[in-house]
Write a protein that binds this DNA or RNA. Structure first.
Length: 418
RNA sequence: GCGGAUGUAGCUCAGGGGUUAGAGCGCCUCACUGUGGCUGAGGAGGUCGUGGGUUCGAGACCCAUCUUCCGCCCCA
């Protein structure tokens, strides 16, 4: 084969596209219930947008950006993350008005140069929401609720919502010192690059999979003990709300996120169906980001959710379905063929999906085709039907068959869906 | 970026130096010229990921490369 989809990308074929369309519909529905408005931003942005917001030392900026210079000499980067572009659009078009709370959602491709693996791709897609302008813990809870409710609606209920607070700048810097001194002995044993990584972001040590690190960090101080009063209160309030609205969650003080802009609340939703790439959804509060992009001080909170990973979990739950059609119109005799295409057009004009044979197949082959397409009904038309004005409608699943006047076909078959 | 696997028919996979490369499922034809699913009999479909090399001979062995997958890193 000469050409194939580039590494880490994939085609979505008709069977899977059905699942994607359903997911999109459900997400649209849920965010609609909460009054979020859709934003669609470009596939690429000024490189600086990502560098400024994700953090110069973040993995995204240091090694994962699809960055290039365009013919005008501009440095461009394919969308590496959903939040910064949404916030850029929010500021550019003044969507925040006089500081009102503004709710936005998006569905977007995301490009990151990473080593592909199941559930990790170089182009993947995310649903996301951003609630901008509110500092209330109720906003944090709402965002988590939207994620949880959506997952439930699509049948993914076996998930864990993990929450944490990483506080503000002062908390992180004093906690950072505490972790480093706690782990000093351990750090001395590490390889150089691991040590550099740990020192750059000591919070990562808490997430380490190295058994020695896990052992050492068992006794490490918790960031929750370093929170300032305001952060502490926010976190307690958030946990209280989540409990009130029956969202099962656990507090996991070791959660850290890879983007520098998070403040206070961070959360993840994990699934155990995904192997090493277990996060279905990740998000949190980012009270400094809007200002960092040149806007007014604006508190905000949001999440991103990986659509490929949702599809993987659904596949493992066998919620897969195929493309089907309502009516397959069959010509039982050659003289009925023109009437068959007329009936097809009639059904479609009444919003009933219909297909018929165009290759001159005989009755038996047409019935086989109807079956293969999982049609609800075969509408059979031959000389007898032409004479009587009644089509023979055969319901393929039950095998029941009845005569239906041509003019009533659409309402008759359409009713199956009521 | 590091370590380890993998690639043979549309799909899932067998074959591990020796004529014309196999199975199941799917597809096509026929039994079956007004009725699909079941059955039986036929059939089509492969540059064995790609490029080099070793050999009298390579799908198989060697090297390179690409893809996918597993783990790490990291994330959705």
């Amino acid at each position: 084969m000469k050409y194939q989809a580039p590494r880490g990308t994939h085609d979505i074929l008709p069977n899977e596209a059905v699942v994607w369309r359903d997911l999109e519909g459900y997400f649209r529905h849920v965010v609609g219930l909460y009054g979020y408005g859709e934003v669609r931003t470009p596939a690429f942005e000024d490189t600086e947008l990502f560098k400024r917001t994700s953090g110069e030392t973040s993995d995204i900026v240091t090694k994962q950006m699809y960055e290039f210079t365009d013919k005008g000499g501009r440095s461009i980067t394919l969308k590496a993350e959903g939040t910064a572009p949404a916030v850029r659009a929010y500021l550019e078009h003044g969507l925040g008005g006089q500081g009102q709370t503004t709710r936005l959602w998006y569905q977007t491709p995301v490009f990151r140069y990473e080593r592909p693996q199941k559930g990790r791709y170089r182009q993947h897609h995310q649903f996301g929401i951003e609630c901008l302008g509110s500092a209330s813990p109720q906003a944090d809870a709402e965002v988590i609720e939207v994620a949880y409710r959506f997952l439930n609606m699509i049948g993914i209920s076996d998930v864990k919502v993990s929450v944490n607070s990483i506080g503000r700048e002062a908390t992180r810097s004093s906690y950072r010192q505490a972790v480093l001194s706690h782990a000093a002995g351990y750090l001395a044993d590490l390889e150089a690059d691991e040590r550099a990584r740990a020192e750059k972001n000591p919070l990562r040590l808490l997430d380490s999979k190295d058994p020695k690190a896990i052992e050492v960090m068992k006794a490490a101080p918790s960031i929750l003990d370093y929170l300032e009063d305001e952060s502490r209160m926010r976190f307690d309030t958030l946990c209280g709300i989540l409990a009130d609205i029956d969202i099962p969650f656990e507090v996991r003080p070791e959660i850290v996120r890879g983007l520098d802009y998070y403040t206070d609340t961070v959360f993840e939703v994990l699934s155990d169906q995904l192997g090493a790439q277990s996060a279905l959804c990740g998000g949190g509060r980012y009270d400094g980001l809007v200002r960092a992009l040149g806007g007014p001080d604006t508190p905000a909170v949001g999440f991103g959710m990986g659509i490929e990973r949702l599809a993987l979990v659904l596949e493992s739950l066998r919620f897969n379905s195929g493309e089907s059609i309502q009516a397959y119109v069959v010509a039982a005799t050659e003289s009925a063929r023109s009437e068959v295409s007329r009936i097809c057009r009639l059904l479609r004009s009444k919003d009933v999906s219909a297909q018929c044979d165009v290759d001159g197949k005989d009755l038996r082959r047409q019935m086989k085709q109807a079956d293969a397409m999982k049609a609800e009904a075969a509408v059979i038309i031959g000389d007898d039907e032409l004479a009587s004005g009644n089509a023979t409608v055969r319901y393929l699943e039950s095998g029941d068959q009845r005569a239906v006047p041509f003019s009533e076909l659409a309402s008759h078959i359409g009713r199956l869906y009521d």
